[in-house]
Amino acid sequence: MLPAVEKILYISLIVFAFMAVQTPKLRNAVVFLAVFSASSAFVYILLGAPDAALAEAVIGSTIATVIYLSALQKYKVFTIYYTNEKRHSYGQSNMLRRRNAVLRRMESFCLGKELEAHIVYTTESLHRILEKRGWDLIVRNNDRHFTVYGMEQNYHIEEMKNFFNEKGKDLAKAGYTIDFVIK
């Protein structure tokens, strides 16, 4: 039985290492690395090195993960509030599939800038969100009309404007209109 378990662990090591390298999102990569170290700790146990396994489990999958996550939280997180005041709630499929073309463009923009897009779906009114702090961008959806609010000191807004001017022509053809408001 043991060799089979060992084989599964070896395969999972390769799979998770590959996924950690290939995933475009940094947060997912951190979680895959944590799983990678946990399975390598199991491999160490099976190979007869419980001491190394203990150190690997503690440091690799706990301390390193927390440090990576806190580093990601420090900066590079681009918080986008997406609000649609007409709706009362969002279904699960709505958030998972990200079918909204404008938000998808924003995510690809953030990927290009090595930012981690963190999208908050809400139905609160614009004023409630403006009172809060900690947002980088507010996207207000009114049917096919999108209004994007940003702070003046946020230098990514201008770049995003240019991005949508250059690559957003097909969006305009599909009937979407996007306005940028800088506070």
Partner: peptide, 24 residues
């Protein structure tokens, strides 16, 4: 982990690393 490190797997380094979890 620190105290049983004398005769079992474990020891000062691993036990100390576990204790950091408190501050984290």
């Amino acid at each position: 982990i620190i105290f049983t490190g004398v005769s079992q797997p474990g020891g000062g380094f691993q036990g100390g690393a576990v204790l950091v979890a408190i501050f984290m």
